[in-house]
Write a protein that binds this DNA or RNA. Structure first.
Lengths: 259, 259
DNA sequence: TAAGCTCTTTGACATGCGTCAATAATGTAT
DNA sequence: ATACATTATTGACGCATGTCAAAGAGCTTA
């Protein structure tokens, strides 16, 4: 079992190793030992903490459960809380005055929400599926940063990682065509699914075609048409309950970069 | 004169106040007092350090000068160095195998380069104009992070800020039309120009139409046509040496969000 | 089982931006 | 100043994706 206090940390992302063997399905609660038993601890910022520190973190954490389509936070609101997703799927988005929407990210178990500018959230967040979140008071967490330097290092890693993802997404939005966008998206879900311990070839798509369109800079119809084309071509198989089987990741990779 | 050791720092960006009155035009060198006299110190990560700490920072810094179109770093290279721009303009970009390019950012004096994933750069960087850079060894800077906690806080602020900018850019790339993209770009340059102490109504555009296109997800021709339209409409005036005068920022703001 | 949602798929058509090509403007070197 | 190279602008045209509309599929409720 890995002890958080030996985390090394670097300016790059992925500084912490992921060596937990089993994932319990229990969610975090307010009990003192809650964080110790957290099923996504190895994925979350909490991986930077040792058992004693986790105990202290438990004291400022509250678990929140939300239903699908519930709002977690809204752009412009005072950024009083930070969140970690422990179960379910969240989407972050920004709106233009006329209602056009850009989804900037889908968040899964272990992902972190709440990086802000000037004490106000820079985006809105809503539940795609029912979700469970760990909620931290931002001011209390900031207080803990001084005591637990590895936590700050870990936050920097998280932010660096998100920055790299954001740059990939800019390349996708600015320079890829619809088919490449969709394949890139499926591959991204695949690798994130794998990191959480699931089969990379069978991914879950709980979000609607419209959500996918707003993430990829496309319309619902274009997303749907491209799903059909990939299916016809044998590059994907649409299964029940919004699952997609990817018979050949290499083929999808090729489709994600060249027309 | 502000002392770095009183910087408060928060999880949000813009934690440090910008209260320097005058900006000398000298660039940083390898002299021990170099960082103290740095013209962009108040804009850079160095604002998190007091005089004694800056002295130490000076010892691991080297100034680099490059000509227009020179390469600073390339995607995939080992991320051995971090940079601060002290003069000139830099562009960060990613390429697809077939040569399509997405510029993910233009960097000006005070801006920071080098956040990486897995010890390799996630993007390439090249000089748009002749530039001067402060180069830090990444390993040495990481060593300093343990001694100077405010520096780490500052890096987190920088990363948070970049993340917020990246999300704005995703909204632009995914959901704005060509005219809105161009107006948003001009307004962004305007406000960044203002933060560096210049006239927000007269901005410098040292990058080519093709660079602007690769930043906004457009072609050279579309960028050029939209410049012409904005000019005809009186929303902008093209001046000599790639300068643009913006007669009314409010008008541009309206044009940046609705068709 | 049927009715009534919502979401997805498919079709027909429109259009904003890309592509290709020519000319004009700008900068650089001789 | 003149010639040359590079970049910007403009025009003509095509196409990928958007728009509008209808049909089909999947869920939920009674």
């Amino acid at each position: 079992m890995q002890s958080g206090s030996s985390t090394t940390g670097t300016l790059s992302g992925n500084g912490a190793a992921h060596s937990f063997a089993t994932l319990e399905l229990c969610a975090n609660t307010c009990l003192p030992e809650a964080c110790l038993n957290c099923s996504v601890r190895h994925l979350a910022i909490c991986a930077a903490l040792n058992e004693e520190e986790l105990q202290e973190l438990s004291s400022i954490v509250k678990t929140v459960s939300l239903g699908a389509h519930d709002t977690v936070l809204s752009e412009g609101d005072p950024a009083d809380y930070l969140y970690n997703v422990t179960a379910g799927v969240l989407q972050l988005y920004k709106l233009l005055p006329d209602g056009r929407r850009q989804i900037t990210g889908f968040l899964f178990a272990g992902d972190f929400v709440g990086i802000a500018l000037n004490d106000a959230y820079a985006y809105s967040a809503e539940a795609v599926t029912p979700v469970k979140l760990c909620r931290f008071s931002r001011s209390k967490l900031e207080g803990m940063l001084d005591k637990f330097p590895y936590l700050e290092r870990r936050l920097l890693n998280v932010a660096s990682n998100e920055l790299v993802q954001a740059q990939d997404q800019m390349l996708l939005l600015g320079r890829k065509n619809a088919k490449e966008k969709l394949c890139s998206f499926l591959l991204d879900l695949s690798s994130r699914s794998e990191r959480r311990g699931s089969d990379p070839q069978l991914i879950s798509l709980p979000m609607s075609r419209s959500d996918i369109g707003d993430y990829l800079g496309l319309t619902t119809e274009t997303v749907s048409r491209n799903f059909t084309q990939l299916k016809t071509k044998g590059a994907i198989q649409l299964r029940e309950n919004g699952h997609v089987y990817l018979p050949d990741l290499d083929v999808l990779h090729d489709l994600s970069e060249e027309a």
